Simulated assay, not measured.
Amino acid sequence: MSEPMCLKRLIDVRWPRGVICSACGSSNIGNIETRKPYQCKECRHQFTPISGTICHGAHLD
Rank of each mutant, 00 (worst) to 15 (best):
Pro37Phe: 00
Thr48Phe: 00
Gly52His: 09
Pro16Ile: 10
Leu10Thr: 12
Cys24His: 12
His59Gly: 10
Cys21Asp: 04
Gly52Lys: 00
Ala58Arg: 13
Glu33Tyr: 01
Leu60Gln: 12
Gly57His: 10
Gly30Asp: 11
Glu33Pro: 00
Ser51Ile: 03
Gly52Leu: 08
Asp12Val: 02
Asp61Arg: 14
Leu60Arg: 11
Cys43Trp: 06
Gln46Val: 07
Asn31Tyr: 11
Met1Ser: 13
Pro49Ile: 13
Gly25Ala: 10
Asp12Gly: 13
Val13Met: 12
Leu60Asp: 09
Cys40Arg: 04
Ser51Gln: 05
Val19Tyr: 02
Thr34Val: 12
Thr53Gln: 04
Pro16Arg: 00
Ile54Asp: 09
His59Phe: 08
Val19Gly: 04
His45Ala: 07
Pro37Asp: 04
Asn31Glu: 12
Gln39Gly: 00
Ile50Ser: 06
Asn28Leu: 04
Pro37Gly: 05
Cys6Trp: 12
Ser22Val: 15
Pro49Ala: 13
Leu60Lys: 12
Cys24Pro: 03
Phe47His: 01
Pro16Lys: 06
Leu7Gly: 00
Cys6Arg: 13
Thr48Asp: 10
Thr34Pro: 04
Lys36Asn: 10
His45Tyr: 13
Glu3Gly: 04
Pro4Ala: 14
Pro16Trp: 06
Met1Trp: 01
Cys43Gly: 08
Ser22Trp: 07
His45Phe: 12
Val13Ala: 14
Gln39Glu: 12
Pro16Met: 10
Gly30Asn: 07
Glu42Phe: 06
Ser22Ala: 12
Asn28Asp: 15
Val13Gln: 08
Pro4Tyr: 11
Pro49His: 14
Ser27Ile: 08
Pro49Trp: 09
Ile54Met: 01
Pro37Asn: 09
Arg44Gln: 08
Ile54Ser: 09
His45Arg: 08
Ser2Pro: 15
Cys55Thr: 06
Gly25Thr: 05
Arg9Thr: 12
Gly18Pro: 08
Ile50Asn: 01
Arg44Met: 06
Met5Leu: 15
Arg44His: 12
Lys8Ile: 03
Glu33Gln: 11
Cys24Asn: 09
Cys40Gly: 08
His45Thr: 04
Gln46Gly: 03
Pro37Gln: 02
Arg14His: 07
Glu42Tyr: 02
Asn28Met: 05
Cys24Trp: 02
Glu42Arg: 02
Leu10Lys: 05
Lys8His: 09
Cys55His: 10
Asn31Lys: 15
Gln46Trp: 02
Met5Val: 14
Arg35Gln: 13
His59Ala: 11
Asn28Thr: 08
Pro49Val: 12
Cys21Asn: 07
Ser2His: 10
Thr48Gly: 13
Ile50Pro: 00
Ala58Met: 14
Ser51Cys: 08
His59Cys: 08
Gly57Thr: 01
Lys8Thr: 07
Gly52Asn: 04
Ile54Glu: 09
Gly52Arg: 08
Thr48His: 09
Arg44Asp: 07
Ile20Trp: 06
Val19Ser: 02
Val13Gly: 00
Thr53Ile: 03
His59Lys: 13
Cys21Leu: 04
Arg44Lys: 14
Tyr38Cys: 02
Thr53Asn: 06
Asn28Val: 06
